[in-house]
């Protein structure tokens, strides 16, 4: 049972720290930093389900975040729905979209699948830029009145923060649960050798579609929450390919295939990224550094930091998953 795994308690502890540390000192700046780290961890750990567990590289993963943002924001502001309900419905809607779409493109293997996901991203961005109900290229804004149901803008920011931390914890726990389940073993078999997996009895078509859909759910919810908090959304920020790639860099850096790797990579990279983006000299260099990091990881340490840890201390595998 998952409660027996030490890592589960580590996740709960870390999440509690994320919540209480900024809350105690009412440190808004820290909260803003941590929320970005939390989103990075959400994106990286859900992406891990596709890349690390199943071996399918979803280059266009940010599409779930962006679409979730659009659907959820539309429901919460234009339609006036309760934020949490809007977020969950956005999650379900985007997962369904992923399921239908996945059934088509998951027949493609390896690199073709990766390219097709970039194509979906570009295509959806182009579509949304021309879609009237969602504001076309200008996007949508959240008026202050939309924050009233949550008790005003200040309170709303704290509430969305807690919700994002909850989604982060759920993402990590979901990764952990799948990793130790029969479903997860089937995914690993697909990753190692899809043809052999099918001959062993794994229904690869169904499994891939399910995990693709599942990997969309929590990022979509996070999308609703983040864009609601930020107050606006438009096609260029919702579907930025660079963010998608950065999620891959985070995962590779931390160690794909492991839950801790996604968390560590997300945390480290986001911290580095924030530093680079706020430093006046280095901001346009952030792409160069990200690219350089990715190259170094691919060439010298494809298992990332956690992979390196596992080689040094094989016993760590049991605790740090």
């Amino acid at each position: 049972m998952i409660l027996r795994r030490p890592f589960f308690w580590l996740v709960l502890l870390a999440s509690a720290l994320f919540v209480f540390i900024p809350l105690r000192s009412n440190n808004v700046l820290l909260r803003e930093d941590l929320i970005l780290v939390a989103v990075a961890i959400i994106l990286a750990s859900n992406l891990n389900l596709m890349i690390g567990y199943t071996g399918y590289v979803n280059f266009g993963n940010i599409i779930f975040f962006g679409l979730g943002g659009y659907v959820g924001l539309y429901l919460a502001t234009v339609r006036g729905w309760n934020l949490m309900l809007a977020a969950v419905v956005a999650g379900v809607a985007v997962s369904l979209f992923a399921l239908l779409f996945g059934l088509a493109i998951l027949r493609l293997r390896g690199a073709y699948f990766a390219l097709a996901t970039i194509g979906v991203l570009e295509a959806v961005q182009a579509f949304v830029s021309n879609f009237n109900p969602w504001g076309r290229a200008t996007g949508m804004y959240v008026s202050f009145s939309a924050y009233q149901p949550l008790g005003g803008a200040m309170r709303a920011l704290w509430i969305t923060y807690y919700l994002i931390i909850a989604v982060m914890a759920l993402s990590l726990i979901l990764s952990l649960a799948i990793k130790n389940s029969k479903f997860g073993l089937g995914l690993f078999a697909i990753r190692e050798d899809e043809d052999a997996a099918v001959v062993l009895g794994v229904n690869a078509t169904v499994y891939k579609a399910i995990i693709y859909s599942v990997s969309a759910f929590l990022p979509a919810i996070a999308g609703t929450l983040m864009f609601y908090k930020n107050g606006m959304i438009d096609p260029s920020i919702a579907f930025e390919l660079t963010l998608s790639i950065e999620a891959i860099v985070m995962l590779m850096l931390g160690g794909q295939g492991t839950v801790m790797g996604a968390a560590l990579g997300g945390g480290l990279y986001e911290t580095l990224r924030s530093y680079l983006l706020t430093s006046p000299k280095l901001s346009s260099f952030h792409l160069v550094i990200a690219g350089g990091l990715l190259l170094l990881v691919v060439l010298f340490a494809p298992g990332g930091l956690i992979g390196w840890l596992y080689r040094l201390a094989p016993r760590a595998r049991k605790v740090i998953e």
Partner: peptide, 17 residues
């Protein structure tokens, strides 16, 4: 294939940066 996709993409990012 994933590795060459990522390594060439990494170079792409650096050049564009």
């Amino acid at each position: 294939e994933l590795m060459s996709l990522l390594s060439t993409f990494a170079v792409n990012m650096m050049v564009i940066g």
